[in-house]
């Protein structure tokens, strides 16, 4: 328990100390909300989609969580390069605990980041029906964060340095974001895109978040929850397996 806590605490401390990173990574979601939200708002309304800002905001929160979570996982590569990873690897604690502590820490950071975007969106034009649903929304945000931090850690366990980072951004993270229904509704899509969006884990996270925050589900909360839950277990298991095999 104390092992998981101290690893979690380390991530939180590092996050809170990097103000530049917090502010820097808020720029993108805010820009997306303003440019896309106001830019596509009129067309979306004309097409009968309703208020686009309401639709878009959960998607952008999901995006921030995805990016921050993957990045937190990938930070393992830095730990390896700066040497700190050795310190944790020789410690007499189980690899599973190390993996869980890291993942919880990264996921907490990503959830905080998502929460900040949610709060800022209220000033841009997002409207929250009642604040009671916030707690459930945070639970879903944390689940999305856990899933992708574990995925990021799993990928980082396979990489020696940051050279593969662009590859991961362009061929994994951006597609996960763009094809998840974060920007557009999943109804009436061409078959191929429809298929891809269904195997995109983020689709279920965003669907749950959008359903809770803005009141329209596509898959339904039950299915969303189940898939998120299973994928969290799956990615943590893979991450732990790969993490165990690291040699430095």
């Amino acid at each position: 328990m104390s092992t998981i806590y101290i690893l979690w605490l380390r991530q939180i401390k590092r996050y809170l100390r990097s103000r530049a990173r917090i502010i820097g990574s808020l720029g993108q979601p805010i820009l997306f909300l303003i440019a896309l939200g106001f830019g596509f708002g009129p067309i979306f309304k004309q097409a009968g989609g309703g208020n686009y800002m309401q639709f878009l905001t959960p998607g952008i929160i999901g995006m921030s969580i995805l990016f921050t979570a993957i990045f937190s996982g990938i930070e393992l590569i830095w730990d390896r390069q700066f040497g700190f990873l050795k310190e944790t690897l020789v410690a007499p604690v189980s690899r599973t605990q190390i993996m869980i502590g890291r993942t919880l820490g990264g996921a907490t950071v990503a959830t905080l980041q998502g929460l900040i975007v949610l709060i800022l969106s209220l000033f841009i034009g997002f409207h929250l029906e009642h604040f009671g649903i916030l707690l459930l929304a945070i639970v879903i945000m944390f689940m999305i964060a856990l899933m992708f931090t574990a995925l990021g850690t799993a990928i980082a366990s396979l990489l020696e340095d940051m050279q593969g980072f662009q590859l991961i951004m362009n061929f994994l993270v951006m597609p996960l974001f763009l094809l998840s229904g974060s920007l557009f509704p999943l109804q009436g899509l061409p078959k191929a895109i429809n298929f891809v969006s269904k195997i995109d884990p983020l689709s279920y996270g965003i669907d749950a978040l959008r359903g809770i925050l803005a009141g329209n589900f596509h898959f339904g909360l039950g299915l969303d929850f189940l898939i998120l839950f299973l994928l969290i277990i799956f990615f943590i298991a893979i991450g732990t397996f790969l993490f165990r095999r690291i040699q430095v």
Partner: peptide
């Protein structure tokens, strides 16, 4: 065992 590594292994941000 305990170990002092040849290469740096501290967390600079702590």
């Amino acid at each position: 065992f305990g170990i002092v590594f040849q290469d740096p292994s501290l967390d600079d941000e702590l």
